[in-house]
Design a protein around this nucleic acid. Structure first.
Lengths: 334, 334
DNA sequence: TTGTAGGCGTTATCAT
DNA sequence: ATGATAACGCCTACAA
């Protein structure tokens, strides 16, 4: 490995000068600067980032806690994070978060990461405190079910968004609206259920627990199974429309309806949340709430880097959203 | 930040002993071991990984070069990589590879990464040499278009796989088979085209350049556009079946057919490559080649870690595949 | 404008 | 069984 010492020797200067050149610090005489650059080129030198981090106490690495890296909603956000991070010269370390391994996070990230981005996970107070103590700011994309004062987050205004969606459905004559959500653990989905409920109730629309279907981990398959089982029971569905916590689940529900011969939207309207690409390529295409993944990714990295560099306070903020009406919602069947 | 010195002081031992305990090296008397562990617990100490890396010259980080992190084919592989990496205590650093920024890779990874996994990208000889020189092994998932002796890779046997697919289509009476691939840059797709061509020719089936459609970056939208434009030309399609370089493109093709009123598989059979989840949830579901993403991820990390730890040579190997026949392929229309 | 030297938190080699 | 202490490669006062 060629080190800074080698460069200094080759260029006939001290190691300090090499550093100055690399980080264009002190005013180095142009002639020596060229000598150093020349030596760097000849030797193919690259500064060792680990050594630099040790000294500067900046790793230029940001940890990202996925729930499931196979979910295109999360990777859509990651796309934005990654792009912006690159602009700032930051690298991203991805970890899939497993609650039972939460304690390992401290080890995994110790001294490795300048900040951590969570995806709506509810971390233990102990974990949050730990990162606060070691000076690694935490930021969440999506509302964590268990909020910590010290963990700011970005999310869309689900209450307002589901309100608009409820208005859309009510306008089509729907009075009984079900929900396809998650069996615990994926906390942010419960957040969505809570807000849908409140949005419905604010409009005088009832929500019953019997109208709640549940899958796991936001997967297509689990939603498919849940809906299939529901339809297999034979009796008429108790609701005329269903809102899904995410598009993958909506696609699962749609698949189940197709396989069971239930026509969408004639017999059942399906609406969803997130607006991943595939939601617009099913047939019928799915009415959903557009979640600005890319922009949220950008804004998050912007905020974190500003905080790291200038001490700008890292604060929660809201992202905008949009209701995208497609063909999966139609007039209520009765 | 609480360091090893703090622990040593608290436990009333030397810093060396703390290291011994942490890395259970030399035989430490049980009593002192407990004292040290106690101190560690009380102080909430975690070893600084950056400092450790500097000394040991092992970062326990593996770089991963995505083409597009939003593509679920790649994240499916990443899922396997990540899971296995976690078992070995390795972290993954994800970077989206952009050819025009290839030179930055050296900076980004310098001293940060013990190995690098590429996703079929064709790196410049200079880049390959650089990592060889600094002792960072390179491994590719998917065949790189431009092979380097020193870069082993894993892939399925596309020639055999497309051979089987060709047999399937020929069995349905298809004689003219088109291809939806990529406009350069995404090198591994060209690999697929090349092998399809050879597989067809080996069976006495013609392939004409006019039957080649092209999208960009393997995206659904680009394939949708390409197919839509082709259909807009009005005349009969010159082929009765089309093979797509990946499932996202196949879904784009299918969408275009639906929107243009071309019935699949009655008027056109669609086959594809990769078998992402969504390929089985379109209507009709798509006939495709199953690519064992998860297992490839596992095997790759296994091989790399074995190489890093025991010097086991890092060699190319083949993964198995499977043809999954679904409803998007049917009898040829004439 | 350039050089010297201390220190970042570890590990590991020697002594003890 | 434990303790000093020299690296690891870099940055940055401070000195020259």
């Amino acid at each position: 490995m060629v080190t800074r010492d080698d460069v200094a020797r080759r260029a006939g200067v001290s190691v300090a000068v090499v550093s100055y050149v690399i980080n264009n610090k002190a005013v180095v005489k142009e002639a020596t600067r060229q000598k150093v650059l020349q030596a760097i080129r000849e030797l193919g030198y690259n500064p060792n980032l680990t050594a630099r981090s040790l000294k500067t106490k900046r790793t230029n690495q940001i940890g990202v806690l996925f729930n499931n890296i196979g979910n295109s909603f999360e990777t859509g956000i990651a796309l934005g994070l990654e792009q912006k991070a690159r602009e700032y010269g930051q690298s991203l370390i991805f970890q899939t978060f497993a609650p039972e391994e939460e304690d390992n996070l401290k080890m995994i990230f110790m001294g490795r990461t300048d900040a951590i981005i969570a995806f709506g996970q509810s971390l233990k107070t102990e974990t949050v405190d730990h990162f606060a103590k070691v000076g690694v700011p935490l930021f969440s994309i999506m509302t964590p079910e268990l909020r910590h004062e010290s963990v700011p987050f970005v999310d869309i205004d689900w209450l307002a968004a589901y309100g608009k969606l409820a208005d859309h459905l009510a306008g089509l004559g729907h009075k009984r609206i079900g929900f396809m959500g998650n069996r615990l653990r994926e906390k942010h989905h419960d957040v969505r259920l809570r807000f849908l409920r409140r949005a419905l109730e604010a409009r005088g629309l009832e929500f019953r627990d019997e109208w709640l279907l549940r899958g796991t981990f936001g997967t297509l398959e689990s939603a498919y199974d849940a809906m299939s089982n529901r339809l297999a029971e034979g009796d008429e569905l108790p609701f005329t429309a269903i809102v899904c916590a995410n598009d993958l689940m909506a696609i699962g529900v749609l698949s189940a309806c197709r396989d069971r011969g239930l026509s969408v939207p004639d017999r059942l309207s399906i609406a969803s949340s997130e607006d991943i690409l595939m939601a617009s390529h099913t047939s019928p295409a799915i009415t959903t709430i557009h979640y600005p993944r890319r922009r949220i990714g950008y804004a998050t990295v912007d905020a974190i880097v500003a905080h790291l560099k200038n001490g700008t306070p890292l604060e929660s903020f809201a992202a905008d959203y949009e209701i995208v009406i497609r063909q999966s919602t139609g007039r209520a069947r009765d």
